[in-house]
């Protein structure tokens, strides 16, 4: 079994924590200083989460085996109508069928 707490890992976690806290207090501090955000900067900031998250989805599909590809494709179709739980359930069922029944 690995160690209880690894120094490098704790440092990484705390850096993530500081970054997150900065976003949580940042808007409050910005409000005191800035009147408005330039539209192009606003559009760029708005696109950050979708762009980052897409880079975690597309390569996973590209690199995944056939079970992952089918599960993700089905989840996408379900996701156009339903919320996250049905998507996860469907994808998980497909993968489990591939791995344990086929």
């Amino acid at each position: 079994m690995s160690t209880f707490l690894n120094t490098d890992m704790v440092a990484l976690i705390l850096m993530c924590a500081v970054a997150t806290f900065a976003t949580r207090i940042g808007g409050y501090m910005l409000m005191a200083r800035m009147k408005s955000i330039p539209p192009r900067l606003d559009a760029a900031l708005n696109a950050v989460p979708a762009a980052v998250l897409t880079t975690l989805v597309a390569p996973a599909f590209y690199a995944g085996e056939i079970d992952i590809k089918i599960a993700m494709a089905v989840a996408l179709v379900i996701g156009l109508r339903f919320s996250v739980m049905p998507m996860l359930l469907a994808g998980w069922c497909i993968v489990m069928v591939f791995r344990h029944l086929l």
């Binding site: 998250l53 995944g64 989840a75 994808g91």
Partner: peptide, 25 residues
Amino acid sequence: DVLLPIYFMEMVLGFRRKAGFLPIV
């Protein structure tokens, strides 16, 4: 292992009514 990509996919879909969603994604 299949749950995370699907979870992230749902988050991406959550932005789909934002301006410029499709070209950005």
